[in-house]
Simulated scan of single mutants.
Amino acid sequence: MMLDKNIDELRQIGDPPADAFVSLYFADADKKLKLDEALKKLVFNKDWQLFLATIPEAVFFENGLSKINKPPIKEITNTQTFYKKKEEFILQLLGLLSLPYCYAAADGAKVLYQTERMYKDVRLRLEETAEFVIAVMSKNAFADDGAGIVKIFKVRVMHAAARFYLQKMGWDAKLGKPVNQEDMAGTNLSFSLIVIRGLRKMGFTIDYKDQLAYINYWNYIGEMLGLMPLLLPKNGKEARDIDLKIAERQFKPSPEGKQLTQSLLNCFYSLNDGKQVSNEEIPAYMRFLLGNEVSDILDLPQKIFPTSKRILLQIKSSLS
C-alpha cells in the first residue's frame, strides 16, 4: 500500500508507457496530426482495432489492460446498477464536491490552473467529466457498442499530454511531475470514496458492501488510467488512510485552488435558474458537502446551507 512507500518518490512518477507514447507522437508535427485525426474517429470501443492499425504504438494500452484483474462480473453489474439509481446525485457531486476537493491540493491545482481550459472553459470541463463518468459507469462500458475503454484511453493520453507540455514550459520539478501518481490517486478517490461520502451527507444510506464495490470499480478504472496498483485501496480503511495522508501532505491554500473554485462557482451561477437554490445557496451547499476545513482552504463564502433544504435533500434521497 502507498503508506508503506516514500510518497515523495511517487510524485516523480507519471505514467511511463503513456508518456513514451505521447513523446513519440507530440515531438513530430506530422505524427501529432495523424494521432489527432485518428483520435477523432475513436468513438466507440469497436473502433479500437481500426485505431490501432493506424496508431500501432497505442498497443501499450491494450497490453496493459490484459494484465489488470477485472472485478467479478456480478460486482461490476451491481455497481453499475448502484450508480444508475443515483446518477443524478452523483453527477451533481462531481461538480459540487469532487472537483473542488481536488482543488484543495495546492500542487495538483497548479496543473489544472496552468492547463488553462480547465478554468477558462469550466462548463466544457464539467461536461467532459460527466461524459467520462457516464461512459465508464454504463452497462455497456466495456462492450463493443460502449465507450468506456476508449474514453479511458483518451483521458490517459490527455494526462500524458499535460505532462509533456507543462514540463516543456518550465514546470517546477520540486513539485513532482504534473499529474503524478500521488495526484492521480487523490483524483481517483475523489470519484469513489469522496462521492460515497457525499451521498451519505445528502442523506443516502450506503452499506459497506456497496461502498467497497464502488471503490473497487474505480480501482479498476484507475489502473486502466495508469495508476500504480500499490495506490489502490483494498478496503474502506485503506481508502480513508490514503485520502487522509494525501490531504495532510497536499491540502493547503493556494491562489490556483481559489481561482479554480471561483471559476467553478461563476459557472454554476451562470447555469442556475434559481428554481431550487439561489446563487447564494450554491457555495453554502458546497461548504456543507466539503466541510469547513476544505472550504476555508478554497476561500468559499462563509454561508450556512438552510436546514430546510437539507431536510428536502434527505427526503428526495429516501425516495430514490
Results as ranks from 00 to 15, higher is better:
Asp299Glu: 14
Phe204Lys: 11
Lys234Met: 08
Ile221Ala: 02
Ser66Leu: 12
Met228Leu: 15
Thr77Cys: 00
Leu42Ala: 09
Ala161Gln: 11
Ser270Gly: 07
Arg200Ala: 08
Leu227Ser: 04
Pro178Trp: 05
Asn69Asp: 14
Ile311Arg: 13
Ala58Met: 03
Pro301Met: 06
Asp107Lys: 15
Asn180Asp: 13
Asp19His: 04
Ala161Ser: 10
Arg123Met: 04
Asn63Tyr: 00
Leu112Tyr: 08
Met158Glu: 10
Gln211Phe: 06
Tyr83Asp: 05
Ser295Phe: 10
Asp241Tyr: 04
Asp243Gln: 14
Asp243Tyr: 14
Glu248Gly: 00
Lys258Asp: 01
Asp145Ile: 11
Pro229Val: 11
Gly176Ser: 12
Ser254Arg: 04
Gln114Tyr: 13
Ala58Leu: 05
Asp145Ser: 13
Met286Ser: 06
Glu280Leu: 09
Leu189Met: 11
Lys34Cys: 05
Ser138Pro: 01
Arg240Ala: 15
Lys34Met: 11
Thr54Gly: 03
Glu256Ile: 04
Gln302Lys: 15
Ala104Tyr: 02
Phe82Ala: 07
Ser138Lys: 11
Asn279Arg: 08
Ala161Tyr: 10
Leu312Met: 13
Ala38Ser: 14
Val155Glu: 07
Phe89Asp: 06
Leu65Thr: 00
Ala105Lys: 06
Gly222Asn: 03
Lys201Ser: 05
Ala185His: 02
Tyr220Lys: 00
Ile246Thr: 04
Ala161Gly: 01
Gly108Cys: 02
Ala141Thr: 04
Pro100Tyr: 08
Leu3His: 08
Val155Ile: 14
Arg310Ala: 06
Leu166Phe: 05
Leu91Glu: 10
Arg156Ser: 06
Lys245Pro: 00
Leu289Pro: 06
Ser192Met: 07
Gln211Ile: 01
Glu57His: 12
Phe82Gly: 09
Val150Ile: 13
Glu281Cys: 08
Thr129Cys: 02
Ser263Pro: 00
Glu128Arg: 14
Ala105Ser: 15
Asp36Met: 09
Leu212Ala: 13
Pro301Glu: 05
Gly236Ser: 10
Gly236Cys: 10
Lys154Arg: 11
Asp172Lys: 12
Ala147Gly: 13
Pro253Ile: 05
Lys31Cys: 08
Tyr269Arg: 12
Met1Phe: 02
Lys154His: 07
Met169Ser: 15
Ile282Thr: 03
Tyr101Arg: 10
Asp30Thr: 09
Ala173Phe: 06
Arg123Glu: 15
Ala239Tyr: 07
Asn272Gln: 09
Phe82Arg: 09
Gly222Gln: 06
Phe61Ser: 01
Arg200Asp: 00
Phe44Met: 13
Gln80Phe: 06
Leu265Lys: 02
Pro17Lys: 05
Val277Trp: 14
Phe204Ile: 04
Tyr101Thr: 07
